[in-house]
C-alpha cells in the first residue's frame, strides 16, 4: 500500500518537472502547492509570481488564493495585474505556468468556463481568470488534472485556455510566438505531447497504476508505448511537503 496521497504525488511530480532557476506562474490549489514544492525542494533558485502582482514572495505560509495577503509578504515587489502579465509573457524569461481545468482535449486545450452550451450552461465554473493568459503567453505550461473520462474529452465544451490548438503547427499559425503545454500531471501518471503532432501520449505511470487503467479513464486514444514507471516520492520530499509546505494540509487534504 502506498503511504502517500494522490495530491502529494501530483505536487511532487510537478515540482520535479521544474528546471532550477525557472520563473513560475502559480494559481490556486495544487498549482500553488507545486510552485512552493519546486522552490523548496527541486528548483531552489526558481522564483514564483502571481497574476495579482506578487513577485517572488517569501511564501512562509501557503496562500489560499492568488490575492491572499501571503503573496504580498517578503516579496521582491508588490505590483498589479498589468505588471504580472508583462512578466508572464516577457521575451527574456522562460516562464512556466501551472494550470488546472475541468476538461482537457488531446492537444492540451483547457476548459475552466462552463459545461454544456456556453450561453445556457449546465455547470458554470469560475472562468479563465489568468489561465487563458498563461496558456497564451507563458514559455511553457504544466497542467494538473483529475484523471477521469469525463475530463479527458475529444473536444472541450468551451476552449478557455489554448494548448496546441488543433496540433501540428496550428498554435504558431494562430499567431502565438511561443508556449504550449509541456506536461499533464494527473492522479495516475504524467502525459506529454508528441513533438510533431502535438497529440497527448502517456509518458509515465505511477507505481501501482496500469496503463490499461489510464487508457480506460481517458476519453480518447492514447499512445502508451513509451510509458515508464514514475519513481515513488522519497522521504525527504514527503517530509518537506508535509512539514514545511502545507503543515495545516490546507490544500493536501486528508493524510494517507
Amino acid at each position: 500500500m502506498a503511504d502517500y496521497t494522490d495530491k502529494e504525488m501530483m505536487a511532487l511530480c510537478a515540482g520535479r518537472l521544474v528546471p532550477n532557476g525557472a520563473v513560475l506562474f502559480a494559481g490556486t490549489g495544487l498549482s500553488m502547492l507545486a510552485a512552493t514544492v519546486a522552490k523548496r525542494i527541486h528548483a531552489p533558485e526558481s522564483v514564483v509570481f502571481f497574476e495579482t502582482g506578487g513577485i517572488d514572495p517569501a511564501l512562509d505560509e501557503l496562500p489560499l488564493a492568488v490575492a491572499d495577503p501571503r503573496v504580498m509578504s517578503g516579496s521582491a515587489m508588490n505590483a498589479g495585474l498589468i505588471e504580472a502579465f508583462s512578466i508572464l509573457g516577457h521575451r527574456r524569461l522562460s516562464t512556466i505556468a501551472f494550470l488546472g481545468a475541468a476538461q482537457i482535449d488531446p492537444y492540451g486545450n483547457l476548459n475552466s468556463t462552463a459545461l454544456g452550451d456556453y450561453r445556457h450552461p449546465k455547470v458554470r465554473f469560475p472562468g479563465s481568470g489568468g489561465a487563458c493568459d498563461a496558456a497564451s503567453l507563458a514559455w511553457g505550461v504544466i497542467i494538473f488534472m483529475q484523471h477521469e473520462k469525463k475530463r479527458f474529452v475529444p473536444k472541450v465544451d468551451y476552449l478557455t485556455s489554448p494548448g496546441w490548438l488543433d496540433g501540428g503547427d496550428s498554435r504558431q499559425k494562430a499567431g502565438f510566438k511561443r508556449g504550449g503545454p509541456l506536461a499533464v500531471v494527473t492522479n495516475l501518471g504524467i502525459l506529454k505531447f508528441h513533438p510533431e503532432t502535438k497529440h497527448m501520449y502517456l509518458a509515465e505511470v505511477y507505481p501501482g497504476v496500469s496503463v490499461e487503467e489510464v487508457q480506460e479513464k481517458t476519453g480518447f486514444e492514447l499512445d502508451v508505448s513509451q510509458a515508464v514507471e514514475t519513481p515513488a516520492p522519497n522521504e525527504q520530499e514527503l517530509r518537506i511537503l508535509r512539514e514545511e509546505v502545507d503543515p495545516q494540509r490546507l490544500i493536501l487534504g486528508p493524510a494517507a
Partner: peptide, 8 residues
Amino acid sequence: KTGLNTDI
C-alpha cells in the same frame, strides 16, 4: 496576443 483562437 492573449486569447487567440479560444472561445473567449
